[in-house]
Design a protein around this nucleic acid. Sequence first.
RNA 1: UGUCCUAUGGUGUAAUGGUAGCACACCGGUUUUUGGUACCGUUUGACUAGGUUCGAGUCCUAGUAGGACAACCA
Length: 588
Amino acid sequence: MAENQEIEKNEAKEVLNFIEQKVVEDLANGKNGGKVQTRFPPEPNGYLHIGHAKAICMDFGIAKKYNGVCNLRFDDTNPVKEDNEYVEAIKEDIKWLGFEWGNVFYASDYFQQLWDLAVTLIKEGKAYVDEQTPEEIAAQKGTPTVAGTESPYRNRPIEENLRLFQEMTDGKIEDGKMVLRAKIDMASSNMHFRDPIIYRIITTHPHHRTGWKWKVYPMYDFAHGQSDYFEGVTHSLCTLEFVPHRPLYDLFIDWLKEGKDLDDNRPRQYEFNKLNLNYTLMSKRNLLTLVKEHVVEDWDDPRMPTICGFRRRGYSPESIHNFINKIGYTTYDALNEFSLLESAVRDDLNKRATRVAAVLDPIKLVITNYPEGKVEELDAINNPEDVNSATHKVEFSRELWIERDDFMEDAPAKFFRLGPGKEVRLKNAYIIKCSENPAECIVKDANGNIVEVHAEFIPETKTGEANCNMKIKGKTIHWVSCAHAIKAEVRLYDRLWKVENPRDELARIKEEKQCEAIDAMHEILNPDSLKVLTNCYVEKYLANSKPLDYLQFQRIGYFTVDKTSTADHLVFNRTVGLKDSWAKEMKK
RNA sequence: UGUCCUAUGGUGUAAUGGUAGCACACCGGUUUUUGGUACCGUUUGACUAGGUUCGAGUCCUAGUAGGACAACCA
C-alpha cells in the first residue's frame, strides 16, 4: 500500500521544462494580468518539418496547458520566396498534429504600422537611407572580432532621408539601390546592432497578400518583435539562434514606445534548442533543393523529415508528440537519435495498428494432404493488444504464399522456421511439417533456386480446436492464400542519408570541393533509401484499406496505404520495421 | 583573437545545495500462435582545476571543449 502511494506520488510529480517553469512563475506573480499568449510564426516559404513540430508543440502546448491562446502568424515579409501554397500546407500540418490556433495573423497585417514607425525613426534621426552596394555595406559591417565602420550616408539630413524613403516607397528607386538602416552602433559586439537594414526595395515580385501595393518591405528583425508586441504576445518562444536578436527587438519596442513606460508587459522572448536528428537533414533550404532537383518525389516523400512526409510514411500525430515529449526542451544544442523517434512510433502503432498478413518475398507452399479446391474461412484478430479487438476473416487453402526467408534448406541450429524435417505453426491455421527428405519438400528450378515448398498439415491442430496448443519447436509464420491474396506494391523506406550528421558533412564537402549543395548531397545520399517491391501478396481484407490506415504486416513492420494506391494497384509504404532480433542474431 | 550560450552513461533528459534517476540504444533472460509486444535483469555517467559550504551535478572563478552571431533571408 505504502509502495503504491509512493508510485502514485512519483507519477504525479510532473517535470516542467525551463520555459514552463517561467510561465508558471509569471502566472504566480500575476504578470501580464495572468494572461498567456504565444504564437507560432512560420514563414510561408516551404513545408513544415519535424523541427517545426517541436516548436509547435511548445507554442501551442504552453497556451493549451495554461489556458492561453496561441495564434498562427505568418512572417511574410519577403514576397520573393513566399507563396499561398505554403500557407495552406502549414495550416493543414498544424491541424493534423492536433492543435488549434486562436487567430491567423500575418506580418503583412502590420506593414502600415511598421512603415509609420520607420518614418518616425527617420524623423528622430534613428534611421537613414543608405545608397551603398550590398558588398560595401557588408564590408563595413566588420566581423565579430573587428568593429565596423560607419556608412558615408549615416549622417545625411533628416529631410533628405525622408524624401528618399518616400521615393523608395513610391517605387521610384530601383531594387537594390537604397535601403533604410537603423542608426545604432557600428562597433557593437552584437552584430545585429551594427546599423541593421530595416527596409529594402522589392518591386519585381507581388506579395501573396498585398499584391503590388508595397514597393518596400520590412526586414524580419524589424517586423518580428514588433508583430509580437502588436499582438500582445506574452511569451515569445523561439530557438537558440535568436538569442542575439532579443536585445534588438527590445530596442525597437523602446523606440516604438518613444521611451515611455519601458518597464511594461512586453513580449518576453525565451529560447530553446532546436531539433537535430541524426541521419536527417532538417533545413528548409536543403529540403527545397531535394524537391527541386527531384532527389525525392516531393515535399511529402516518405523519406522527407517534413510533417507531411511523416504523415504519408504512416506516422501518427501521437507518435510525434510522444517523441517531442521525450527529447525535451533545453538550451543545449543536442543531436538526437532517430531510433528514439522510431521507438515512439512503434510504441504508438503497436496499440492501434490492424494486424494483417502480407508476404513481401513470396515462395509457394503446397499443403500436400489438404484437399484441392477446399477453402476454409478462419478468424484473425485485428489487434491482440486490444482486449476488445474485432476480428476479420482470412481464407485458407491448399496453396499458400509464404515468406522466402521462412524456409531454409540448410538451417543453423537456432532457425525455428521451415525446412526439411521442421514444423511450424501457420498463424491462425494449422501446424504443418516438412518431410525429413529434402527431395520430398523442395522443388527447384533448372538453376537450383527453390521455387516451391511442400508440407503436410496436422488436421486437429487448427487454431481454436482441441490440439491447437500442441507444443512444437518451430515458430509461427504468416501466409496468404494464393487463390485469394491480392498482388500489391510495397515500398520499403530507409534513411535518406548515409552519414550520421548530414548537415556538417554537407558543409565539409562543399567547402572541400567548392561545389553546389546538390553535388555534395549526392556523395552522402543513401542509395538504398527506397526499395520498391512489386511482387508482394496481401490478404484480401486489405482491398478496402484507405490511405493513412495504420497497419501492421505481421512479423514485418508497420505499414500504411500510400496516397497513390488504387483498387487495381495497391501501394503500401513501410512506416518502420518491427524490431528484428533474429536479423540481429544473424549478424553476429 | 569579441560577445553570448552550453557541458550529467553510447544518445537524450531529470534533480532547483542533501541517496545521481528515467527513456532510447546495447547486452542477457522469462513469457509468447508476430524472433513483435509485455516483463525482469546486467554493464555504462558529473569536462578539468581551484574555491564557497557541515554538505556541490547544482553556487563562484579559471581553464578546456562545443555551439550561436558578420544575407537588401527568416
